[in-house]
Each structure stands twice: as C-alpha cells, then as structure tokens.
Amino acid sequence: MNLTKKFILPLGLALLVGGGIHFKQTAISMAPTAAMHKPRKAGVTPKEALFERTVIRPLADKTEKSKTRLQKLMSQETATLYSVNIDWKSREAELISAARQLKKDELIQLGDIVLNRTGRSDEKTVASYLLAMAGEPARPVLRKVAISPIETKSDGDPHSVLAMKRAEEVNLRASAIAAIDELSRKNPQASLQDLAAIRRAQSDPSLQHMVMISLIGIEQGRPGKLNRWLEQVAGNGEAQ
C-alpha cells in the first residue's frame, strides 16, 4: 500500500503552494524591519566564537539528545518531506518498520498532532503517514482521526486559505479511512464497525464515498476495495 502516492504527496503539493504564500507574506512583513538595521560586518569576534563554542553548540547538542524517539523520527521526516533526492520506495520500507515499533502512547501522540488545528501542516502530514503505516495497534487512533469533525467551513472560494485548510482536514481523515480499509484485509469485522461509526460522524461527500466503497468491499467478501480503487484512480483506471 503506497499511501504516499494516494494522499501524502497530493496534500504535500497543496501545502507547498500554501507555504509559498505564507513565505511571501512573511518576507514582505519583515522588509521594513530589515531596512531599519545596517548590515552586520562580516566575520565573528573572538567573544562571539567563544560563546558559540561554549554555550550555543553544547545547548543544541543537549536538546538533540533529549529528544524522544518519536520526536527524532518526526524531525527527520518533516525535514525531508518534499525532498526529490530520496529513494522513496526503499524509504517507505524503513518507515513501515519504524512505525510498527511505535508504542501506544506514541501512536496517541501522533493522533494529537494530526488533530491539532494550530499545528504545522508538514508535521500533520508525517504523523498521518506514520499512523497509516503502524498497522493494527494504530486502529483506535485512526478511528478517532477519521470520525473527528471537520471544523473549517468552506467560504465558496476554492482557492482561498480557508479552502486549503479544509482540504487539509479532509485529506488527513481520508488517509485514516484508507488505513482502516487496509486493516480490513485481516480484520474485516473491526473495520466494519469503524467504518459504520465514520459514516455516522462525517457528512463530507468525498469521505462518505470512500467509506461506502470500503463497506461494499467488506460486504462482498473482498476487503481492501477502497485501496484497490484508489490505486486504479491514481493509474487512471476504472474502479472495480
């Protein structure tokens, strides 16, 4: 199952565009402040070098060492989220292995990151991906994400900031639904209950459509139908 292709990269591209807008706004807002200060002289004084060596670097090293396993994994993946110089096929195998070693409290933390409305988009994307890769232990968290309400309301403009925010919320829940569909291959009854709960909780048409496809697959004795459909859509094929 390649969830990167299905959800993460499409979402990443949208967020990248949004990030560009934010960067431009930040640069503009900083321009007057920068103009008020004279450029610093090149070079570093002996005192500055000593401070860097004895205070700044040890503090940075201590901070890095104090990071938890999950924090290190999140930092590493957010730093390379949009990199084009990575073999994603082999990297995905490594991430699956890392995700399946995560403990219950770490999976709960990932869910909290995904549902944090004021959190960073890149962190939400990585957290959603890791949850989808974590397998059966992540089921309760995936269900919580999938049934959580979409709080951003549409303003009618598909290119607005609000529309992008809503699209992000929908994508994160879609990723959770696809992961629950994948889990239905081994545990269809548990997924059946999860999908029924999601169907009652979500009114978004695209999420409802995904839930129905997954439910039909289970009822037909062919669990995993949603993921097969997504693969065919990605390849411009017809759903079966």
Rank of each mutant, 00 (worst) to 15 (best):
Met1Leu: 09
Met1Gln: 12
Asn2Pro: 14
Lys6Ala: 11
Leu11Gln: 03
Leu13Ile: 02
Val17Phe: 08
Gly19Cys: 06
Gly20Thr: 03
Gly20Cys: 01
His22Arg: 10
Phe23Arg: 06
Ser29Lys: 13
Arg40Leu: 13
Ala42Thr: 08
Glu48Thr: 11
Glu48Trp: 09
Glu52Gln: 15
Val55Ile: 15
Pro58Trp: 06
Leu59Ile: 07
Ala60Arg: 12
Asp61Leu: 06
Ser66Gly: 09
Ala79Pro: 02
Asn85Ser: 09
Trp88Leu: 14
Glu92Lys: 14
Ser97Thr: 15
Ala98Glu: 15
Gln101Ser: 13
Gln101Tyr: 05
Gln101Asp: 12
Gln101Asn: 12
Gln101Gly: 13
Leu102Glu: 11
Lys104Ser: 08
Ile108Ala: 02
Leu110Pro: 07
Leu110Trp: 04
Gly111Arg: 02
Asp112Gly: 00
Asp112Glu: 10
Ile113Asn: 03
Arg117Tyr: 01
Ser121Ile: 00
Ser121Tyr: 01
Asp122Thr: 04
Val126Glu: 03
Ala127His: 01
Ser128Val: 00
Ser128Trp: 00
Leu130Val: 04
Glu136Trp: 05
Ala138Ile: 00
Pro140Ile: 05
Arg143Trp: 01
Arg143Phe: 02
Val145Asn: 00
Ile150Asn: 01
Ser154Thr: 05
Glu169Phe: 01
Glu169His: 00
Val170Trp: 04
Arg173Phe: 01
Arg173His: 00
Gln193Thr: 11
Leu195Met: 14
Arg199Ile: 06
Arg199Ala: 15
Gln202Ala: 14
Asp204Thr: 09
His209Phe: 14
Ile213Glu: 09
Ser214Tyr: 07
Ser214Thr: 05
Ile218Glu: 09
Glu219Gln: 15
Gln220Gly: 06
Pro223Thr: 11
Pro223Glu: 10
Gly224Pro: 07
Asn227Phe: 09
Glu238Arg: 11
Gln240Gly: 14
